[in-house]
């Protein structure tokens, strides 16, 4: 089997279609759409996207229920085998709740839902997801979240900083996140979680196409492989 991407939908996901469209526009191939209750991932999958939304109505904590859904066991083991996993917004919350990424996403410091396009600084352009950007480049990507306030203890923050695992930082304070962190990668470099929505910025009609580079780089490497 050739290139295969999948977008996972949980009850309450609402950016799954946008994510699927972004993947198809960039890769030219329609991703599989998987449901949270599926327990097995198809063989040969080489890109998994966890979309934004309000999975399970944000019951208990954002992402907490989705992180324990049947399909996530398979996603965790796929991530362990090195399969690239992208979690956006609620997808990022799910990734921290599973432990695939460190830290937690708390209520925005302002208590407000924040919905606007924000400037991000590309902090590490050497990752699978950010290789299409220049180091230190500013890109404009929309955010739309209530719980995007990244928290981790000092030791974890120091580790993320020193290991180059901060992929994106808010160029100006946004939601109270520690160290203005907007997106981080795991230690293997194959899992990225970010609050801003690159899939909402892939063509000029969106007002920004700065998110396209992320998909081009992550999917391009796989299409060539």
């Amino acid at each position: 089997m050739g290139f295969g991407a999948a977008v996972i939908t949980f009850p309450g996901s609402n950016c799954d279609r946008d994510m699927a469209v972004a993947i198809e526009k960039v890769s030219g191939r329609e991703p599989l759409r998987l449901w949270h209750g599926d327990s097995e991932l198809p063989d040969g999958l080489d890109f998994i996207a966890l979309p934004g939304g309000f999975s399970y109505g944000d019951y208990l904590r954002s992402g907490a229920m989705a992180a324990r859904s049947p399909i996530m066991k398979s996603v965790i083991s796929a991530a362990g085998r090195g399969v690239p996993v992208l979690g956006v917004c609620n997808g990022f919350q799910v990734l921290t709740e599973t432990g695939l990424l460190p830290g937690a996403l708390m209520r925005n410091a302002s208590q407000n839902f924040i919905c606007r396009t924000v400037p991000l600084t590309v902090e590490n352009s050497q990752t699978l997801f950010t290789g299409g950007y220049e180091q230190g480049e500013t890109i404009n990507i929309p955010v739309a979240h209530h719980d995007g306030n990244f928290f981790a203890n000092e030791d974890t923050l120091n580790q993320l900083e020193s290991e180059g695992r901060i992929a994106f930082r808010y160029a100006e304070p946004c939601n109270g996140s520690r160290n203005d962190i907007a997106g981080i990668i795991n230690d293997q470099g194959n899992v990225l979680g970010m609050m801003p929505h690159p899939e909402r910025a892939i063509e000029p009609e969106h007002g920004s196409s700065d998110g396209r580079g992320l998909f081009e780089n992550a999917l391009g490497a796989l299409l060539e492989a």
Binding site: L60, A64, P102, A104, M106, F151
Partner: peptide, 9 residues
């Protein structure tokens, strides 16, 4: 530990 609390926070 597994669900009711998020031990990070």
């Amino acid at each position: 530990r597994q669900l009711l609390a998020n031990m990070v926070i």
